[in-house]
Nucleic acid binder design. Structure first.
Length: 190
DNA sequence: TCCAGGATGTTCT
DNA sequence: GAACATCCTGGAC
């Protein structure tokens, strides 16, 4: 199955965040394949979004948010790698944070990397990067490129109920609720 | 060069 | 539910 195309990502971050739910995130790191269905995301904009890394000026770390959509945007917070995908058109800053996935492939590999029980493998943004082996060496890589170590595919068409809430752990959130997750999913972070 | 702080996780009670 | 370990980044000096 081919990865989702660039035009999927080059739309408003809130739309991309909603439509990424139910898609499959696949990581091939050191010939080990791990994957999971995306069940929780958050949208980040640029100017006017005080919680966004792009609300202030460009730095070497965040300049990728102004680049094309569909690139891996990875940074460290509190000793954990967080995995985002850039969104919106070139020149317009935006990104979607992947907060949780439901494991589909490579569960044994995840357990070895995380030393945790099944429902704790990927139920948080720092946890899933550990489970999938994602680090800043993947920063800037293209998730629409079939040869990339990290790609996103159209997952199984499965019905679920969409819920929204305010974003987690941000100091100044916007009025709008920009966290999206699958209702009653045990892998959604709390 | 130093230091405060963060889109977190774990381990306590 | 609260404390703390963790470690990179950016700004201060």
């Amino acid at each position: 199955m081919p990865p989702l195309p660039r035009r999927f990502y080059e739309r408003s971050p809130d739309i991309v965040a909603i439509e990424l739910l139910g898609k499959e995130l696949i990581a091939k790191v050191r010939s080990r394949v791990t994957a999971g269905i995306i069940v929780e995301t958050e949208a980040y904009f640029g100017k006017g979004d005080p919680a966004s890394r792009a609300s202030k000026r460009k730095t070497p770390m965040n300049e990728i948010m102004w680049d094309r959509g569909g690139l891996a945007f990875i940074y460290m917070v509190h000793g954990n790698w967080l995995f985002n995908i850039t969104a919106d058109k070139p020149g317009v800053p935006g990104a979607v944070l992947i907060r949780a996935i439901e494991p589909t492939k490579g569960v044994e590999t995840m357990k070895r990397r995380r030393h945790a029980k099944y429902t704790e493998l990927t139920s948080g943004p720092g946890k899933l990067t550990q489970a999938l082996g994602i680090t800043n060496r993947h920063h800037g890589s293209d998730v629409t490129d079939p040869t990339n170590e990290i790609i996103v595919e159209r997952g199984l068409k499965k019905k679920f109920q969409l819920c929204t809430s305010h974003r987690i752990g941000v100091r100044d959130d916007t009025k709008r609720e920009l966290r999206f997750f699958v209702k009653d999913c045990p892998f959604v972070s709390k």
